[in-house]
């Protein structure tokens, strides 16, 4: 019984329902955009995923800061959970962005500011996760990881500013049908985008919660092992 209910987390039910509504709106309801055609529907996927990865960065830096301040384990767990989910969302964002850019901009990648910033931040948080994997467990690992989280947050506005300046000096060669035409959808687009973003936000929170629980179980195991060792030592 418990096994079946374990799958039916209320957050998962809500995000699945919202995702169903969002998919209906994306594929059945919203009209096709005239400049780009069907491929424009990637927007309703790309933007919410990008929003998810941005939330990931916010949560990592916020909870890293709180960990350095309060030294409470739960902030470290939240930081690592959100870094991992954020990197998964970031990978989805980069891939969907590239596939979208190819038909509408005629290139897979360009030196546009938001693209450069997203890529570099993605690398910083991948490094964050690798650092955690390489460093021996303990309070020092959590402290140092939190420092990387904070540094990444400080760096992101500087990266965006630099990337922006760079793309002004080197205007990207973008000549597809969407190179400079604005979308003609307006309010319909906004409504679908909002719904889709809501669905992905719930999905993000669900994944964050699951990852947090895993981290918590890992800590519990360490605790239990220590306790069992102590029991054995006292018996011997």
């Amino acid at each position: 019984m418990n096994k079946v209910l374990g799958f039916l987390d209320p957050l998962l039910i809500v995000s699945a329902a919202l995702m169903g509504v969002a998919l209906y709106l994306i594929f059945m309801w919203v009209p096709t955009e005239t400049n780009q055609g069907a491929v424009q529907r990637i927007l309703y996927f790309h933007v919410p995923v990008a929003w998810g990865s941005m939330m990931g960065i916010f949560v990592v830096s916020g909870s890293s800061f709180l960990y350095l301040w309060k030294k409470d384990e739960k902030w470290d767990r939240l930081a690592v959970a959100s870094a991992e989910v954020g990197v998964v969302f970031g990978a989805m964002m980069l891939l969907s962005g590239m596939i979208w850019a190819r038909p509408v901009w005629a290139v897979w990648w360009t030196g546009e500011a938001k693209l450069t910033t997203a890529l570099i931040l993605f690398f910083i948080y991948v490094a964050y996760l690798m650092f955690r994997a390489y460093f021996p467990p303990g309070a020092q690992r959590q402290r140092l990881a939190a420092i990387i989280g904070v540094i990444g947050a400080i760096d992101s506005p500087i990266i965006y500013f630099a990337a922006n300046l760079w793309s002004q000096a080197h205007p990207p060669l973008v000549t597809g049908p969407a190179a400079d035409a604005d979308s003609a959808l307006g309010s319909d687009l906004g409504a679908v985008l909002l719904m889709s973003t809501l669905a992905f936000t719930f999905l993000f929170i669900y994944m964050l919660q699951t990852r947090y629980k895993i981290r918590k179980s890992e800590d519990d195991i360490v605790e239990l092992k220590r306790a069992s060792n102590a029991v054995e030592a006292s018996q011997a």
Partner: peptide, 18 residues
């Protein structure tokens, strides 16, 4: 860190990109 030679550039280079 174990594998320090790998870890330092992975941390350092993205941050100094700007």
């Amino acid at each position: 860190v174990r594998a320090r030679e790998v870890m330092l550039p992975l941390l350092f280079l993205p941050v100094v990109t700007p």
